[in-house]
Amino acid sequence: MNILRRLPLAAALLLAACHGGSAKPGEPPLAGAKIGGAFSLTDQDGHQVTDRSFAGKYRIMYFGYTFCPDVCPTDMATVGQAMALLAKKDPALAAKVVPVFVTVDPERDTPAVLKRFVAAFSPTMVGLTGSPQAIAALAQAYGVFSGKGETQPGGGYLVNHSRATYLMDPDGKPLALLPADKGPQAVADEIERWAK
C-alpha cells in the first residue's frame, strides 16, 4: 500500500547486518537484531500485561489498529489461519506460540474493542493497548512507524503504519519476519522452521 509499510523489513535487515546478526546457515535471519523490548500494557480483558507475561512462549508481534479497513484484518486472518494449521499439524508447538496484536491507535482501541477484534481471528490471540506514550515506546523498539492520517467523511480517521509480523523467541528476542502477505501456510511453515 504505502512505502512506509515496508520500512520495518528494511530496518530489520539492516539492523541484523549492523549488529552481527547476519544469519549463519541454520540461524534465524533476525538473530542478534535489536528489535523488541520491555513493556507494560493492557490486554483485551483489561489486565495489565508485561513482556514477562509471555516468558517461555514464542510470540507473533504485529502492530496495527482495529479500524483498519484492509491490511490489519487481512494479516490477522492470515495469522489466525496459520495458527489453526499449526494446531492441527503440531498441537504442542502451537501451544507454545502466542499471536499478539498491539494497537497503534490507543485512542479508539479500548480493551473491549480489541476483545471483539482478536476474537474474530484466533482464540489464542492477545490484543494490547495502553497510553499513547507506552504504545509509541514499544512501536519504536520494534522499528514500527505510525501516524494519524487524514480525517475521513463522518469524522473518522485512518492511521498510517508500517506492516511487519515478527516472530520472537521465548526470551523476547527476534527470530524472523513472518510472510503474512504470502498466506497462512507460508506463515505456519516459517513458524515451524524457527520455533522448536
Score class of each variant (00 low, 15 high):
residue 114 L to N: 08
residue 115 K to A: 15
residue 116 R to H: 09
residue 116 R to D: 11
residue 116 R to G: 15
residue 116 R to C: 03
residue 116 R to Q: 12
residue 116 R to Y: 03
residue 116 R to M: 05
residue 117 F to L: 06
residue 117 F to Q: 04
residue 117 F to A: 12
residue 117 F to Y: 14
residue 117 F to D: 02
residue 117 F to H: 11
residue 118 V to C: 11
residue 119 A to I: 01
residue 119 A to D: 13
residue 120 A to P: 00
residue 120 A to F: 00
residue 122 S to L: 05
residue 122 S to N: 14
residue 122 S to Q: 09
residue 123 P to M: 09
residue 123 P to W: 02
residue 124 T to P: 03
residue 124 T to C: 07
residue 124 T to W: 02
residue 125 M to Q: 12
residue 125 M to W: 05
residue 125 M to C: 05
residue 126 V to S: 10
residue 126 V to W: 01
residue 126 V to K: 09
residue 127 G to N: 11
residue 127 G to E: 10
residue 128 L to V: 10
residue 129 T to Q: 06
residue 129 T to L: 11
residue 130 G to W: 00
residue 131 S to F: 05
residue 131 S to Q: 10
residue 132 P to I: 02
residue 132 P to C: 06
residue 134 A to V: 04
residue 134 A to Q: 13
residue 134 A to M: 07
residue 135 I to C: 11
residue 135 I to V: 13
residue 135 I to G: 11
residue 136 A to T: 07
residue 136 A to F: 00
residue 137 A to F: 02
residue 137 A to E: 15
residue 138 L to I: 08
residue 138 L to Y: 08
residue 138 L to H: 10
residue 140 Q to G: 10
residue 140 Q to C: 03
residue 140 Q to D: 15
residue 140 Q to E: 10
residue 141 A to V: 03
residue 141 A to W: 01
residue 141 A to Y: 03
residue 141 A to C: 09
residue 142 Y to A: 14
residue 143 G to P: 03
residue 143 G to Y: 00
residue 143 G to H: 04
residue 143 G to L: 01
residue 143 G to S: 07
residue 144 V to S: 13
residue 144 V to Q: 15
residue 145 F to S: 04
residue 145 F to W: 02
residue 146 S to P: 08
residue 146 S to L: 06
residue 146 S to F: 15
residue 147 G to K: 07
residue 147 G to T: 03
residue 148 K to N: 14
residue 148 K to C: 12
residue 148 K to Y: 09
residue 148 K to F: 06
residue 150 E to Q: 11
residue 150 E to Y: 02
